[in-house]
Amino acid sequence: MSARVGVYPGTFDPVTLGHMDIIRRGAKLVDRLVIGVTTNPSKSPMFTLDERLSMVEREVASVDGDITVVAFDALLMTFAERQGASVIVRGLRAVADFEYEYQMAGMNQQINDRIETVFLMADVSLQPIASRLVKEIAMYGGAIGKFVTPTVHDDVTARVERLGRKGD
């Protein structure tokens, strides 16, 4: 029997406690979890692709399971096929996420119906967390410690200091 491979894609800019929750839980569902770190043309990243790869690798080092972190710049289904995946893992925070994710899952199924999309609901305490909001809070000098690990907090704080905080 071949190993069940799952792909968890995202920009992870920065990786949050919500992402880590989905990674921990997703790793239990598959034999190998590939975290696909990608670029999204509609988003302005705070961190470079290489920085995000390093950040995610560092954060998942202590998570149980066979987890690899890979950069990709292709259609998700093409990337998933290359990884030998049979499952796409997606996290849901709210109803608004569901509409977008449902549409994406339908499109992905049209592209490759051999790869299933599995949705994991974020832990209730982590549902409001979004990378976009973490960056915005940090840029205005707000506390982000409840949303990211201490090391990611340090990464974001250092980047904000370099970019210059807004509202000063």
Rank of each mutant, 00 (worst) to 15 (best):
M1K: 13
S2Y: 14
A3L: 14
R4A: 05
R4H: 04
V5W: 03
V7M: 05
H19D: 08
H19A: 08
M20P: 03
M20H: 06
I22V: 15
R24H: 08
R24I: 07
G26H: 03
A27K: 03
A27E: 07
K28Y: 10
K28H: 09
L29Q: 06
L29F: 06
L29V: 08
V30M: 04
D31H: 11
V34R: 00
K43Y: 12
S44D: 13
M46S: 05
F47Y: 13
F47N: 08
F47I: 14
D50I: 15
E51Q: 15
S54N: 13
S54I: 13
M55F: 04
M55N: 00
E57D: 10
E57G: 08
R58M: 13
A61N: 12
D64A: 14
D64G: 08
D66R: 09
I67M: 06
T68K: 14
V70L: 08
D73E: 15
D73C: 12
D73K: 15
A74G: 12
A74V: 10
L75V: 11
L75T: 06
A80P: 02
E81R: 15
E81F: 08
G84I: 14
S86M: 02
I88T: 03
R90G: 07
R90N: 11
R90F: 13
R90V: 15
G91A: 07
L92S: 03
R93E: 07
A94H: 14
V95C: 04
V95F: 14
A96P: 01
D97N: 02
D97T: 04
D97K: 01
F98C: 05
Y100H: 08
Y102T: 14
Q103A: 13
Q109S: 11
Q110N: 07
Q110P: 00
I111H: 07
D113L: 05
E116C: 05
F119C: 05
L120T: 03
A122H: 03
D123V: 04
S125H: 10
Q127M: 12
Q127F: 03
I129F: 02
A130V: 01
R132G: 04
L133W: 03
L133E: 02
L133C: 01
K135S: 03
A138D: 00
M139G: 01
Y140P: 01
G141K: 06
G141S: 06
G141F: 09
G142F: 07
A143N: 13
A143M: 09
I144E: 00
G145I: 10
F147G: 00
V148W: 01
V148I: 07
T149N: 00
H153T: 11
V156T: 02
R159H: 09
V160Y: 02
V160L: 02
E161N: 10
G164M: 08
G164T: 07
K166H: 11
G167K: 08
D168K: 11
D168E: 12
D168Y: 09
